[in-house]
Design a binder for these strands. Structure first.
Length: 458
RNA sequence: GUGGUCGUAGCUUAAUUGGCAGAGCAUCGGAUUGUGACUCCGGAGGUUGAGGGUUCAAGCCCCUUCGAUCACCCCA
């Protein structure tokens, strides 16, 4: 065994050996930190991520959605156009990239969400020619140059579901029901669904007009921020956190009272289908979207606490009948939703829900050369029977092998030695209880299957 | 972008008025080459986030910066 003498940390040794004047310490010895708001998933969290993704993929595929891959960055104009005026998202909250080529200036932005990229792909790849509607899902990281706070990061994961090319309220309900069922399948309790309809370009102007008249008549009672919102983005006053604003907003006219016949029928149909699906919902008249391309249905799902009321939302979505046209496609109706994966993870933890994976893991221990080659055969047999087989990571003594099995959290250990080979048996030990038994080699699969009360992992 | 609080080993943290950076857990090795956890013994692990200043002396005081956290702005 090599013994390494390293009493002095490497950076100090180098520093001592070199003349410190010759060393640019900053460049050679800098300790790195993760960029702000990016390192939000620990190794322990990875099993939550895998659990969430597994259930999402399974449900999406069951319900006829196809996975879609999109670039991590797109032309900044794509996002600009979809975001619209009256918000400082582009200037303040997107990561901008520049391509440096002589005489050219092309700007890109890291994707701040998935919808715009998916719509671009729909147009560019000619998905209009596929059977409509096109149903897709997405799971990946998105980027926002915000100051991090609770549940808000600069790089985080979103899962996303879109149905493109359908005007029907059936699609709205399909998306909402997916979001609801997905969160329930994860094991979350106390969920609350809120819906609203914000109309379309035909009926919304009349609503905005009435809303403006209302807020103008109460202007003195509004906060300073909301006075500014009157000009910039009046709908946002409705979800202000300021108590003065809340009082005025509660008296404000409701978008659902101004819906045109088409939008009203659509909203009624959504409500009826939800009732028929036995999904409870509340109508939240203040649930609006700040961006122009949203039409008709909006919804959010959040955990609800009997004492504290609704918590911040886990899922949000709605209909966007105007987006595809705004970014250069044919007029195409669409509806979708997105969830922040870290927020779901945080809620799972706060509700005490642990990710469940079937643990069909077996550690194969052996003593002696002969047993080693037998254990290779045995491992293969176990693997082909669907068990996850773990073997000693190095040539370890039997004591160390058990130690390792324990460290890995394996429940069952199979052990082979000279005695066992002679008698064609093996020892099967449950680590939790310490109980072990000698069984015939042929019976091992049968025995383990019964121990695990097999539950399908995939 | 604005404001508050915070940063000591992988994790949780101690350090009196500015006076030798210490522990628990985890890790590694040994007691233990046919049995892990429990136990006992031992080792390793720290430029106190980074840079500068004040001081005989800085984890502690001051400035800058990076990061974390909370609220605001914003929320696709």
């Amino acid at each position: 065994m090599l013994k390494i003498e390293q009493k002095v940390p490497i950076y100090r040794r180098v520093k001592q050996e070199l003349n410190s004047d010759e060393v640019d310490e900053k460049n050679n010895f800098q300790k790195f930190q993760a960029p702000r708001g990016t390192d939000n998933i620990s190794v322990e969290d990875s099993k939550f991520m895998r659990y969430i993704r597994k259930i999402f993929f399974k449900l999406a595929e069951e319900r006829g959605f196809e996975e879609v891959f999109i670039p991590a960055f797109e032309d900044v104009e794509l996002f600009k156009r979809s975001v619209g005026e009256g918000t400082d998202i582009v200037e303040k909250e997107m990561f901008l990239l520049e391509e440096r080529k002589e005489g050219q200036e092309k700007k890109f932005a890291l994707r701040p969400e998935a919808t715009a990229g998916i719509c671009r792909k729909y147009i560019e790849s000619g998905w209009v020619n596929l059977p409509q509607p096109v149903k897709v899902f997405f799971f990946g990281e998105v980027f926002r140059a915000e100051r991090p706070q609770a549940g808000r990061f600069r790089q985080f994961y979103q899962l996303d579901l879109e149905t493109l090319g359908s005007k029907s309220p059936v699609s709205d309900v399909e998306i909402i029901k997916f979001a609801w069922d997905f969160l329930e399948k994860l094991g979350l309790k106390n969920l609350r669904l809120e819906i609203n309809s914000i109309g379309c370009p035909k009926c919304r102007p009349k609503y905005i007009e009435n809303l403006r008249a209302h807020f103008e008549s109460y202007e003195k009672s509004l906060s300073e921020e909301s006075k500014a919102r009157m000009k910039k983005n009046i709908l946002r006053i409705l979800d202000s956190k300021d108590e003065k604003d809340i009082r005025v907003a509660n008296l404000a006219p409701r978008s659902t009272d101004f819906l045109c016949p088409e939008c009203k029928e659509h909203f009624d149909s959504v409500k009826n289908s939800l009732k028929n699906s036995n999904i409870n919902f509340e109508i939240n008249h203040k649930l609006v979207r700040g961006l122009d391309y949203y039409t008709k249905t909006t919804f959010e799902i959040m955990p609800y606490d009997d004492f504290e009321g609704p918590k911040s939302s886990l899922a949000g979505g709605g209909r966007y009948d105007n987006l595809l046209e705004m970014i250069g496609g044919r007029s195409t109706s669409a509806v979708g939703m997105a969830m922040g994966v870290e927020r779901i993870m945080a809620e799972l933890k706060s509700q005490g829900i642990e990710p469940k994976f079937a643990k069909k893991r077996v550690y194969v221990a052996f003593i002696g050369k002969e047993a080693e080659s037998e254990s290779v055969k045995l491992s293969a047999t176990l693997q082909s029977a669907g068990f996850k087989v773990l073997k000693p990571s190095a040539s370890l003594g039997i004591s160390a092998q058990f130690k390792e099995a324990n460290k890995l959290g394996v429940e069952w250990v199979v052990m082979l030695g000279e005695h066992e080979i002679e008698t064609n048996t093996l020892i099967l030990k449950e680590l939790k209880t310490g109980v072990q038994s000698v069984i015939l080699r042929e019976k091992v699969i049968e025995e383990l299957v019964s121990k695990f009360q097999v539950e399908d992992d995939e």
